[in-house]
Design a protein around this nucleic acid. Structure first.
Lengths: 123, 123
DNA sequence: CAGAATCCGTTTAGATACTG
DNA sequence: CAGTATCTAAACGGATTCTG
């Protein structure tokens, strides 16, 4: 009872937007950044505290990518005090849900993944 | 009404397994491969049909990574006909759910993401 | 404050050709 | 059938230093 269902001739026609999945969910710091912005707009220097393990250059790169894809907005302020504020756009906020699902899965199966890696020996 | 909640001092302590998210969900072909295996075990040559846009080398690389992390099993057969069969492990199958959520999000917001990109102009 | 400049190393992808 | 070999290229991340 194998090979029950036939496969489509081209998986890309079937699930084309799935190319966005590795692209957006593959960003190494995106999940962390989005979560930092969940509670409201933050300045660059504010983000650097919880993300102090990310160098400013890399943090900027990630923010730029998120901005480019419309997930995060960037606003330069001068009024209260000069600074730049990043915030989630509605689109960015909508991504929190599938991202949470992914994080929950990762947290739940963390041990299994680590174990599998340790037991694995290259062919 | 900004900056409502204070941010943690280190986001990595809060959400450490989230580093697995970009790692596993960032694999460019993983989503497609997992879906091809959803209906049962498949041979390498069977996978090459729906994934004909992926070169055999890259397909092998992706399969190896999935195998290493315990998401896919690899079995060499000789009985009915010689061949190698790939199948989802229970762990791999458990990843379909968050992956589906991610794919659904990507499909739903595909247009917005594309639009945002086109409108974006580098700083 | 919010980054940019520079340099570097690793990881992945892709094309092409070939093999036990 | 199920890959491997080789080469190329790009993307990404990281460390360090510097600046409007």
């Amino acid at each position: 009872m194998k090979h029950r269902q036939p496969l489509p001739p081209d998986m890309f026609d079937e699930l084309c937007p799935s190319s966005l999945v590795p692209f957006r969910f593959g960003d190494k710091w995106a999940a962390l950044i989005l979560r930092c912005l969940e509670g409201g707009p933050r300045r660059f220097s504010e983000l650097r505290v919880p993300l102090h393990r990310v160098t400013p250059k890399v943090l900027t790169q990630s923010l730029r990518r998120l901005e480019r894809d419309g997930l995060v907005s960037r606003a330069v302020h001068a009024d209260p005090r000069p600074g730049v504020e990043y915030a989630l756009t509605p689109l960015g906020r909508s991504m929190l849900e599938p991202m949470d699902a992914a994080c929950a899965w990762a947290a739940e199966h963390w041990d299994e993944l680590i174990d599998a890696r340790e037991q694995y020996t290259a062919p």
